[in-house]
Design a protein around this nucleic acid. Structure first.
Lengths: 212, 212
DNA sequence: GAGGCTAATGACACCGGGTGCCACCGGGCA
DNA sequence: TGCCCGGTGGCACCCGGTGTCATTAGCCTC
């Protein structure tokens, strides 16, 4: 590799079934995600270059950035679908239930993962909440969630989505959910739903344990 | 400027009293902050290069990165002092007052700026909460605040700073404060303290307006 | 007052994330 | 066969950030 050059994914030793240029490229995205997650978990997000991720996935650096807008996006999976599902859950809530309870319930339900998915979720969230660069990036992703929640609260409470209370509910419930995730990551073998419910219970009750 | 070169702050046209190499450099940092704030506000954070900021401040790009670790840091002023003051306020709270109320009061007080400082604060927060790159970066700065608050709550409530409730209080009060800032930025000529108090009132009462 | 120390600076090369552009390759289709 | 088209790789480039080195000026000491 010459000086100043960038090394075009040459002779990728650990490559797993390299794809052809003109092919539909089935599963390439998933393969890149796996490679990225593995490398980031093993050596840390900042210590791994996009060149290495692309190489491990058997594609070029240029192609990596066609699948993911940024290096950080490779750890998020299909987050847009996650947000969309939350929006659907909110739209399908019982109007008889209080607004805040509906939001919390939707959060719990959208995060009710199958057992088989939990290791992957854990790996993702551990990276996102631990690596500074990913934590920073998360703000942009979570902002999409906030907008969805704020719109819902605004619709139910007859306010504008830009008003204080809808934004407040969105920001605080999301903060609570993130904190629950941290607690889940901290103690192995605990249920995510339990932490979420406990966090929302504290929040909606105004932290009754802190009256002193 | 040759191809591939970077142009060493050559003939800065708009320079304001360039400093000498071996001088104590009084007020250089403040001058760079002003230049950065002006340029970012005028043309957007991403559209301004660090070269341009350095040039406008009459220093080199390399020197810019000696004053600020990242481009984003140039908009935060002395945030560490802000956090330190919050910590002092928390340490000086009345033990008879409830924990949550003490946190909210400290937040209100640390954000009680003099009228003369408000335009600068507004400019800073507008950038931070509007520009995606700065919003992402803010997560790292606000995490320092969260740690301080969580430590305080843990100390008062006899829990560990890593327990759910202390983290939860830190995350949600900070989310509420940020939302209050957004509301303040949205309607010109309103008092920041009013929005903060209203947000904390909603939060600590469990959003009483959303019982339906 | 000469010489040495120190702190701030600027130039330069370099790394790595991200992008625009173009050439290429293969499959499907007329 | 010839054409179009989508996925790809290579390349040059921009820009944020860093390590290194030489330069400068103030200061301290002898």
């Amino acid at each position: 590799m010459g000086i100043g050059a960038r090394g075009g994914h040459n002779a990728c030793v650990t490559a797993i079934e390299t794809t052809a240029p003109g092919l539909p490229a089935e599963g390439t995205r998933a393969r890149v995600e796996r490679a990225a997650l593995d490398l980031f978990t093993l050596r840390g997000f900042e210590q791994v270059t996009t060149d290495e991720v692309a190489d491990a996935a058997g594609i070029s650096r240029r192609t990596f950035f066609r699948y993911f807008a940024t290096k950080a996006d490779a750890v998020w999976g299909d987050f847009a679908a996650h947000v969309a599902r939350l929006e659907e859950l909110l739209a399908a809530t019982d109007p008889a239930q209080p607004v805040l309870a509906s939001v919390c319930a939707a959060y719990v339900e959208v995060n009710d993962y199958a057992v088989a998915e939990l290791p992957l979720l854990r790996e993702r969230m551990l990276l996102i909440l631990t690596e500074p660069a990913l934590l920073a990036h998360s703000q942009l992703r979570f902002a999409e969630v906030d907008r969805v929640v704020a719109r819902y609260v605004a619709g139910r409470s007859g306010a504008a989505a830009t008003d204080l209370v809808p934004r407040l509910v969105a920001a605080t419930t999301r903060a609570a959910a993130t904190t629950a995730f941290e607690a889940w990551l901290a103690d192995q073998r605990s249920a995510l739903g339990t932490h979420l419910r406990q966090a929302f219970a504290e929040l909606t009750a105004g932290f009754p344990g802190l009256l002193r």
